[in-house]
Design a protein around this nucleic acid. Structure first.
Ligand code: ZN
Length: 552
DNA sequence: CGTCTTTGACCTGCGC
DNA sequence: GCGCAGGTCAAAGACG
């Protein structure tokens, strides 16, 4: 970071110099020279200041990092506590929290199809294995276990499953899990615990087929959703054989550059650091949803541009993308949508977000004006289901290394910045709207728009939210939370790389820009005791715009 | 050869 | 009961 800052800072200075120079150009040689000297001095002074500033910023960043980590710790503590509590009430359920369906599988279901039975058996085995070595994922489980619900199977109770929030692009998880196997006993259980399965969808500008979130996904299906020409792809987490987490990926019908991924479930295994951001984001968001299910109040937090809308079951989400879509709604599952797109190109309702966002946030030089803000609002008053917009504008950025920078590895940092620079310099056009001339601005933009960063940020925010409001108070606007406890954030550089999130492998999104140098794939940093993950496999490329596959 | 993706078939829930 | 739509399965192909 500093490097980038410094560089850009210097450049900025130089530019200024030149500008000044030209403006005085005609006045005379002496003066000119004199002025030049003067300017040189002042420039140097400025540089010095900039350096100092950088130092300061660095300090801020470090501090924020620490804060973030502390918060994270606290959050997880809380989560753990809650988990324990819930354990008392629902022991058995707990054990299998993540995979109720699997459980049921082992119990067997009534289906007459032999094929399924086989599968059931197989799954049962996996399940067992899983139990044996079940590790609580950093971010995982808690939401599920906390409420006692089973996440997977439980959703059927309410007859009202229909589409929901994101019809637009189609992120709707249907009523249930789908494994035909789930049935019988589990159902009963799940019914006892009316669990709403929380889903978290993330909208990101990304022109690559998938957004690399650090996890390994395996595609198991693809379908064309009704209102969207783009196929929807279904992925399942393969980090652990029995991990119940699934995600749907689909491009926004309106703006194909927007990738919408919807996550469901929580990981029942440790995750690579690079994946924790998204995972914690989703689980935190999910928990938040679950805990505050009925209160959909909103607490507009401020003015910087983060909007976080919660959608609750009763609300009738009107996806921005489909202004008029007649969505059936009444989703029985709460869904959170993190809108990390800059919403530049697509018109429609997106601009709502833009309004909120302060364009200067990114483009202005070392953005001292950022004041992060979170808005919680209910759908009812908002046409948008839930969206989280992170700073404004700037589309396509695909670098995923962001967070790793600060504390993780120098190389990564350099790498990251390098790519950033490349991106911003080589692809000034990547931003359809504003084209920052200023390197800093570009870098800032790039950083903030980076999916990793965004997810990291999301994670951080949601974690914070989760720990603060998740408890139950959630409803009203008392979610005053500040990022990094430091309300002064505003005066610092947009917390760009503060959150440790990140994925180093984010190539998926960045590949096109970074061109191949996407070496590192899964980061080996684990927050938890490392497991032998195959680290280099993720190759899931997929949906894009490919063919459709049989819808019926 | 093992793993992953593709993709048509199949399953399930829902509305009519 | 029928058709629709979303989700999943699993054989076959692609890839390394
Ligand atoms: Zn997983």
């Amino acid at each position: 970071m500093e490097v980038a800052l410094r560089k850009s800072g210097e450049e900025g200075v130089i530019k200024q110099e030149r500008r000044v120079e030209s403006s005085i150009g005609e006045d005379g040689c002496k003066e000119k020279i004199f002025l030049k000297d003067n300017q040189l001095e002042s420039a140097n002074a400025e540089m010095g200041e900039v350096r100092e500033e950088n130092q300061r910023l660095r300090m801020y960043l470090n501090r924020m990092m620490k804060d973030y980590q502390n918060l994270q710790m606290q959050f997880f503590d809380i989560v753990n506590q809650e988990t324990k509590e819930s354990t008392n009430t629902a022991q058995s359920d707990q054990e299998m929290t993540e995979e109720p369906e699997l459980v049921s599988l082992s119990l067997g279901r009534t289906s007459s199809d032999p094929r399924k039975d086989e599968k059931a058996i197989r799954k049962g085995k996996e399940d067992q294995q899983d139990k044996e070595g079940l590790a609580l994922g950093l971010h995982s489980n808690f939401e599920v276990s906390k409420t006692g619900p089973i996440d997977e199977s439980s959703i059927k109770p309410s007859p009202e499953n229909s589409q929901e929030v994101n019809k637009e692009a189609g992120e709707s998880w249907p009523p249930q899990k789908g494994l035909k196997t789930v049935r019988s006993e589990d159902d009963e259980i799940s019914q006892h615990n009316p669990v709403k399965k929380a889903r978290v969808s993330v909208r990101v500008r990304c022109d690559t087929p998938t957004m690399q979130d650090g996890c390994q996904w395996r595609k198991y299906g693809q379908k064309i959703a009704k209102g969207n020409p783009c196929p929807r792809a279904y992925y399942r987490c393969t980090v652990a054989p029995s991990c119940p987490v699934r995600k749907q990926v689909q491009r926004c019908a309106e703006d194909m550059s927007i990738l919408i991924s919807t996550y469901e479930g929580t990981h029942n295994h440790p995750l690579p650091l690079s994946a924790t951001a998204m995972a914690s984001t989703t689980s935190a968001a999910a928990s938040m949803l679950l805990s505050s299910s009925s209160t959909s109040e909103t607490a507009p937090a401020s003015s910087a541009g983060l909007n976080f809308y919660l959608s609750n079951h009763n609300s009738k989400p009107r996806p921005f993308y489909l202004p008029n879509s007649s969505i059936s709604s009444s989703p029985s599952y709460p869904t959170i949508t993190l809108d990390l797109t800059s919403t530049t190109s697509s018109s429609s309702y997106h601009n709502i977000n833009n309004k909120i966002i302060n364009p200067n946030f990114l483009s202005s030089a070392p953005g001292y004006n950022s004041s992060p803000n979170l808005n919680f609002s209910s759908l009812e008053s908002n046409p948008i289901p839930i969206s989280w917009n992170s700073y404004g504008t700037q589309p396509y950025n695909k670098n995923n290394q962001i967070g790793s920078s600060l504390n993780f590895s120098r190389q990564a940092q350099e790498n990251f910045y390098t790519s950033l620079m490349q991106k911003s310099l080589l692809n000034p056009n990547s931003t359809q709207q504003a084209q920052p001339q200023d390197t800093i601005a570009a870098a800032t933009k790039a950083i903030t728009s980076d999916p990793s960063f965004q997810s990291a940020l999301a994670a951080a925010l949601t974690s914070i939210i989760g720990s603060n409001g998740g408890g139950g108070g959630g409803g009203g606007g008392n979610l005053g939370f500040q990022i990094g406890k430091n309300s002064k954030l505003g005066e610092t550089f947009p917390f760009v790389s503060n959150f440790p999130s990140t994925s180093q492998n984010g190539n998926k999104c960045s590949s096109s820009y970074l061109n191949g140098s996407t070496s590192v794939t899964n980061s080996q940093l684990f927050l938890q005791p490392p497991l032998p993950f195959p680290s280099s496999k993720s190759k899931s490329t997929s949906p894009g715009g490919g063919g459709d596959h049989g819808s019926d």
